[in-house]
Design a protein around this nucleic acid. Structure first.
Lengths: 243, 243
DNA sequence: CGATCGCTTGAGCTATCTCAACCGGCGTGG
DNA sequence: CCACGCCGGTTGAGATAGCTCAAGCGATCG
């Protein structure tokens, strides 16, 4: 995930191997354009069959499912470099929704060209599969978190991993990073109630470990945060091997 | 997932579009052989860099993570048609382990040929990506389950979905299916303690909804089980669209 | 025959939930 | 410009689902 979009001439897909001129030409047609959306916009709706796929260039968002009970499960947080809509591309329909939390800039593709990407540009297809595998890995981790960890542990872990990811994307400054979500969003992601989330955040604050105020997360004591999270200081970021 | 392996001449990959003769030839080289493993065997170890990838031909297994605390999170249940090792194929290493619960028959591939599959057989690459997307979907569902549902609901849901999957694979007979796991396995999958799982199973038994004894699951009252699961009777099986 | 393994059941404990109230900031409309 | 309403955050109190500890039981196996 780290240097996604960095070495790709068109910044359209997270790319990990150099592109040929022919590929660049293809990408230019695959890419439909760029899209700016405002905060709160729905990027993709559960059950829909969106004709478009996106790569995030700027901004932050959320993937979530709406449950029959009306509750919401946040699947994960969407940061620059992430790909949105693989499911829509490859299955009939999206199995979850995605929305913009801040204003976002998106790179837009035409879904019907996805197959020609597989046919003519196997490197990119491989990249896509890699992304899917990483996604799968992340979800597996989250599953383990919800299955086995308590409140503080979940939150601490979320903070550590989020911060690692943001750092590698250059979004962090010092011990701070923007985290423009609501407590309810975090609660929905971690399977905790809002109230309990709030109280647990207070505890982390009081213990001088981490503070999250006004959309900014500050890691006060990284080591202790990692302890809470049962995590080594250097875990969390997925490195892409060459093929 | 439904008819995986059915229409593939070599039964090596879950295949959804017809194969050309050339492809069949390639598959013959991609496929290294078949492997029979006994119950309890470890198929893939977390952190390992297995040179082989598998498709399940027969038998049942588990994917799981071992947590620092020594506890285990079962990621999902492995049934015939499932692919094991995509992560090892595409990332450096496996992020979870897999083991055989019953004796299994596996189709074995050579990982180093994965790239040539992408290069020369885009249909199969697409199939693989589809599998990954389905996997992602399933995990998202599981996440929502652990995040929001209570004990009975989790178990009921697991039974309904498992039974739907088994039915579509022809593993079910009438209202019964083989489910050769331990209560501890289910508990680890659903993020419940063994004791609570046991008591909840008893409740389902006493209510005349479902029974699970001696490795066999019997759905006594499917409708009521679905109620418990907050699920419609027909949900659960993923249909594969054509490209 | 004893040991181990998976299942079952009881009892008490606590993390987390729900309900409920309050607070400050901000945007809107009078 | 003020008042009101709304939203997100904060805090308290009581209720409970699920956990842990602990013991017993039947089957299988060496």
């Amino acid at each position: 995930m780290v240097k996604s979009c960095r070495n790709c001439p068109l910044r359209e897909l997270p790319v990990f191997s150099p592109m040929s001129d022919r590929e660049v030409d293809f990408m230019a047609t695959f890419k439909v354009g760029e899209l700016d959306v405002e905060a709160g916009a729905t990027l993709m709706l559960e059950g829909s069959n969106s004709p478009q796929l996106f790569t995030v260039l700027e901004g932050m968002g959320l993937r979530y499912k709406t449950l029959p009970s009306g509750e919401r499960q946040v699947i994960n947080i969407v940061l620059p470099g992430d790909f949105i809509g693989l499911q829509a591309g490859v299955m009939q329909e999206m199995k979850h929704s995605a929305e913009a939390t801040t204003a976002m800039k998106l790179c837009v593709f035409d879904r019907k060209n996805l197959w020609s990407l597989f046919r003519d540009h196997p490197e990119r297809a491989y990249d896509l599969t890699w992304l899917a595998a990483v996604e799968e890995h992340m979800l597996g981790e989250s599953l383990a978190v919800l299955g086995h960890l308590g409140g503080i542990e979940r939150i601490a872990r979320a903070f550590v991993l989020l911060f690692a990811r943001a750092s590698s994307l250059g979004l962090a400054e010092g011990a701070q990073m923007p985290l423009p979500y609501k407590q309810q969003d975090l609660a929905d992601a971690l399977g905790l109630s809002l109230v309990h989330t709030n109280k647990t955040l207070k505890r982390l604050r009081d213990e001088g470990v981490a503070e999250w105020r006004n959309g900014t997360l500050t890691i006060v004591d990284h080591d202790r945060l990692c302890e809470f999270a049962h995590l080594d200081s250097d875990e969390g970021v997925m490195q892409r091997p060459l093929i």
